[in-house]
Design a binder for these strands. Structure first.
Lengths: 186, 186
DNA sequence: GCATTTTTTTGATTTCAATCAAAAATAAAT
DNA sequence: ATTTATTTTTGATTGAAATCAAAAAAATGC
């Protein structure tokens, strides 16, 4: 969804906020396999997925691992770079044709400052971020690959139609071969 | 450190804030192995460790896994319960004699609302929470048990003197036997 | 439509850590 | 100090998934 539309639906931004936002955003359409944000970046931008599917990943030696999938209307933030001015290890890659809106965090912060309702939205976003991360840790530590597979499927039905098996396997923490076998039985 | 002292050092709270805080906190000393917060709770409290070491854990079937260690001056929040009113799976157990201050999130929120500087502190706390969680995911997904062991050691030197091996092993994602062997060589 | 590349599946083998079991070392209790 | 309980180490075995290798299937390009 168009980001302006998204915020209009949320009813959080004033007309003047929306106009300011419109001026500061950068929209770009990425084609399949294009890198939206390279690994080891130092980006101070917020990434909003208007359309498509992307993955947050890191590649160490030969090991390329997908950490999250990003879908429509989700925000991606390089936390390390924005808040700690450190190299952020994680990159973002488009898995389908993907429309991405980038907002400099600085501008976003300005708009948030002006708008108390948005402060709350911004805080909720943070909380959701924490929830996702802690859920993920539970998922990794306590669920079997099969359970993780089922969880993923319920969160993103139809993901297998759009994402290569290898990425899903690395997300689940198993090899592509093992996932293929897992999927085969029943 | 005494929580009032802690906030005085941070220079974030006014004298009236401090007085209000003093009235709403509950301090309790837990002895070794006592449960500070049981698993599958629905607690709306913030937990501040004034002194001692505790662990955030979850136990599923026979598998008791330590997810984090909490040390002096750290906050623990049952995110699921506070922000989503859901059962929070994770419990907290004292590993040494531990002084814990509990603050009802509601009261904390009130104080934060009154104090813009504290809003910022509160946001920083959230950001740090996210950073810790994402660092942990990197740690689990990309580091070997040996590397995780070294990371833990640099974060908490001397932890082995105070925490049973089994908890450290489950934190690292290996069995106690494997950790013992790992530690043996060199 | 056919050729080429990419992705997925299937098969055989290996490996590393879990499990099972017990001894040794350390800590706690009386 | 001696017993009892707890924690850590060491040893042998097992098993589940990784790796290695190649075939089959699907997608892409010309």
């Amino acid at each position: 969804m168009d980001i302006i539309q998204y915020f209009q639906n949320q009813k959080l931004l004033t007309e003047s906020n929306l106009q300011e936002l419109s001026k500061t955003i950068h929209r770009k359409i990425y084609s399949k396999k294009e890198i939206i944000l390279p690994i080891d970046n130092n980006s101070k931008q917020i990434y909003f997925i208007e359309k498509g599917i992307a993955r947050v990943f890191y590649a160490k030696k030969e090991k390329d691992v997908t950490l999250y999938f990003l879908i429509e209307n989700k925000f991606g933030l390089p936390i390390d770079s924005i808040f700690f001015n450190q190299i952020c290890k994680f990159g973002i890659e488009a898995l389908t044709e993907t429309s991405v809106v980038k907002i400099a965090y600085e501008h976003w912060e300005n708009i948030v400052r002006q708008n108390p309702a948005l402060q709350n939205f911004s805080q909720q976003l943070m909380i959701l971020y924490i929830k996702n991360a802690t859920d993920r840790i539970y998922n990794i530590k306590f669920q079997t690959p099969k359970e993780r597979y089922d969880t993923l499927l319920s969160e993103f039905p139809g993901i297998f139609l759009q994402v290569p098996l290898g990425h899903i396997a690395s997300y689940l923490g198993i090899t592509q071969e093992t996932l293929s076998r897992l999927r085969a039985k029943k």
